[in-house]
């Protein structure tokens, strides 16, 4: 009887690390895949995994939470990622992007783009509103996916630890704006993210996302329903809520995520983070940069849904 093969079990193994022979046959052998799934299951059942202080669970994120987003990313939105070379392979950096599309799919797609497409497979640690963390299930999953509350102590702690931090300063104003105002950037918060970047001397990467606006075109806001449900807005789109659950299917717009040239802050004195004028100026500069890239991307875009 032949001796059993020893199969390495590592669920974090990526496609790139799989021997070329396996790729030729269309991925790792089935028994290896099952073995890694058994290993994953064992670690989950016995609680044998590690999360960081923010509650980030890398194993769960890579193999479970991101999995349903991948078909959406590749087949549905056909996301084209540009300017990845502007995102450093290591060290702290702050990705700042426009927010749109009624639900925060744009943020999740950006996270997936950096995890799968960036050569260093970076985890984007996103900052979210407190409503996200207060909501059952959503808050739990967000923390496990590496997101944390948008507050300066958390942002600075992550940047100091050399993490890639993602922030959507428009917040609910951005995703909850009517379709008629698409690609018009809303007010950029209070500039807290700029102060965090200044204090930690981290570069700011202005990022423009095109395509998310058309996923759920919000024609109107049923504000009284929103008030009753305690939500920031309640969207009425051409399909939602008229078609029921079917109306929750996003329109298959073609997406482009473009990471712009980093705005460096390391030459500035971290103490100027306490100077509101400088913070406002820099916030405006970031906002203008993103708005300009959005316009350029829109001009070069031939159609909303086609390639």
């Amino acid at each position: 009887m032949p001796k059993a093969r020893v199969i390495p079990i590592d669920s974090r193994k990526r496609l790139e690390e799989v021997p070329p022979a396996d790729i030729a046959e269309g991925g790792p052998a089935w028994d290896e895949r099952v073995a890694s799934a058994v290993g994953f299951l064992r670690r989950r059942i016995t609680g044998d995994y590690e999360v960081d202080e923010f509650g980030f669970d890398p194993e769960l994120t890579d193999s479970v939470l991101m999995a349903p987003l991948r078909p959406l990313f590749h087949s549905w939105f056909r996301v084209e990622v540009r300017g990845l070379e502007n995102v450093p392979a290591d060290g702290g950096a702050l990705v700042v992007a426009n927010h749109s599309g009624t639900v925060a799919l744009d943020a999740l797609m950006t996270q997936l783009a950096l995890l799968d497409e960036h050569p260093a497979h970076r985890h984007l640690r996103m900052l979210g509103a407190d409503l996200v963390f207060r909501t059952p299930f959503v808050g739990e999953i967000s923390r496990k996916a590496g997101h944390t509350l948008a507050c300066n102590p958390d942002a600075e702690r992550l940047l100091r630890r050399g993490e890639l931090v993602g922030v959507w300063p428009e917040g609910f104003k951005g995703i909850g704006k009517p379709f008629s105002e698409r690609y018009k950037l809303q007010r950029f918060g209070r500039g807290g993210f700029v102060a965090a970047a200044l204090r930690t001397s981290s570069p700011i990467i202005p990022t423009a996302i095109v395509g998310a606006e058309e996923t759920y075109p919000m024609l109107a806001n049923a504000s009284w329903v929103a008030r009753v449900l305690g939500l920031p807005y309640f969207p009425l789109t051409p399909t939602f809520p008229w078609l029921g659950p079917l109306g929750m299917v996003p329109l298959p717009s073609k997406w482009i995520i473009e990471f712009g040239e980093p705005i460096r802050t390391d030459a500035l004195d971290p103490a100027i983070a306490d100077d509101p004028m400088t913070v406002f100026d820099l916030t405006d500069q970031v906002r203008e940069t993103i708005q300009q890239s959005l316009y350029q991307l829109l001009v070069s875009r031939r159609s909303v849904f086609g390639d």
Binding site: P2, A4, R5, V6, I7, I9, A29, W30, D31, V34, A35, V38, G39, R42, I45, T46, D48
Partner: peptide
């Protein structure tokens, strides 16, 4: 009920069986 050692042993058995099946 399921101490880590036993879970690891079960996992090894399953993987072992798979390896044989695969070969």
């Amino acid at each position: 009920m399921l101490p880590p050692e036993r879970a690891a042993a079960i996992e090894a058995t399953v993987v072992d069986l798979l390896g044989r099946g695969g070969e």
